[in-house]
Design a protein around this nucleic acid. Structure first.
Lengths: 166, 166
DNA sequence: GTGAAGGACGTTATTCTATAACTCTTTTCC
DNA sequence: GGAAAAGAGTTATAGAATAACGTCCTTCAC
């Protein structure tokens, strides 16, 4: 379930050319949907783009607010939630339970559990892939005979730039 | 932050004399509130008792439903949420973000991060205390210079009895 | 005891999050 | 072309949480 690879994390709150994040994410999404034989419609792509506008997890109603009044489009909650459900199922976005919000997945197409470092100052969510965490969870679960199917790991704190700023 | 102690977990979904869980929890609560110099009022104690009625995380509106119509008490959401906020602050209950629900703390009075194994079949939430998980999280955070302030670890799956039943 | 101060709770209203159920349109595929 | 299915619009509602204000009750100084 967890291959012994080194820990990885996204740039997120570090300064970077964010347009690359967006274009890469959209390109990956096209490729993955093609592979899966599912349709990345205009709406779904637009929602994915909005989620990727920053590394801050975005609420469904934030997305709704942007969509409404855009083009001639009228949007209601189910419109957004259906698109988000699709993006969650295809692994293109993650849901942050502790924030009721959604964030783009940094390495879609690869099986992984979402692990997030959420900065309480700049609100960026850094996706971490630290196999030791999953391993420790599987380990702990095994001690009580629990069969793991999904992991929610959300860590609140201060990212490096915000520590420096404070 | 995490002392090297062996992994622990509650009985939860295993058969056990649950009345002990409730009475122990209430006794601990009395003691802890006395130590802290805060008031475990009738309402707060009642909410704590309801949360401990089972090991299944309970929604705020479930609690509200029970309280309403009880005695001559009339209850509105803020009544329940204030009691829950108090119980969270004093460490007597935990909130399960992925369920929007609350569950009694198995070892109140001890500093710890809540780690939960949630059975998708019987809905019991087993509180785990597996220091290796916290250690791995701190470790992963350190690799990107993230300063951890709080951990949310919620694992979905099947508990041992439910695996056997299936 | 009295009265001020603060804590706890009641009450009303509202916001935010999410889904149900139904309709219509668009795409796919034979 | 036409049936079937997928996608999206629409309306309504459920579920989770908080804001703001009022009232009562405890506590503690005097």
């Amino acid at each position: 379930m967890t291959e012994p690879s080194p820990s990885r994390a996204s740039l997120a709150c570090l300064p970077h050319d964010h347009s690359h994040c967006v274009s890469d994410a959209l390109a990956s999404a096209e490729r993955i949907c093609a592979q899966l034989g599912v349709r990345l419609t205009v709406l779904r792509k637009r929602v994915l783009e909005l989620v990727w506008q920053s590394h801050k997890p975005l609420g469904a109603y934030d997305i709704l607010g942007v969509l409404s009044g855009e083009d001639g489009r009228r949007a209601a909650p189910p419109t957004v939630y259906r698109a988000l459900d699709f993006l969650l199922e295809t692994g293109l976005v993650h849901r942050i339970a502790s924030l009721n919000a959604f964030v783009g997945c940094n390495h879609p197409g690869e099986a992984h559990q979402g692990q997030f470092l959420i900065c309480r100052s700049c609100h960026a969510a850094v996706e971490l892939e630290h196999p030791a965490i999953s391993t420790a969870i599987l380990d702990g679960a095994r001690t009580v005979g629990f069969q793991v199917e999904g992991q929610t790991v959300e860590v609140l704190g201060l990212c490096a730039p915000c520590q420096a700023a404070a």
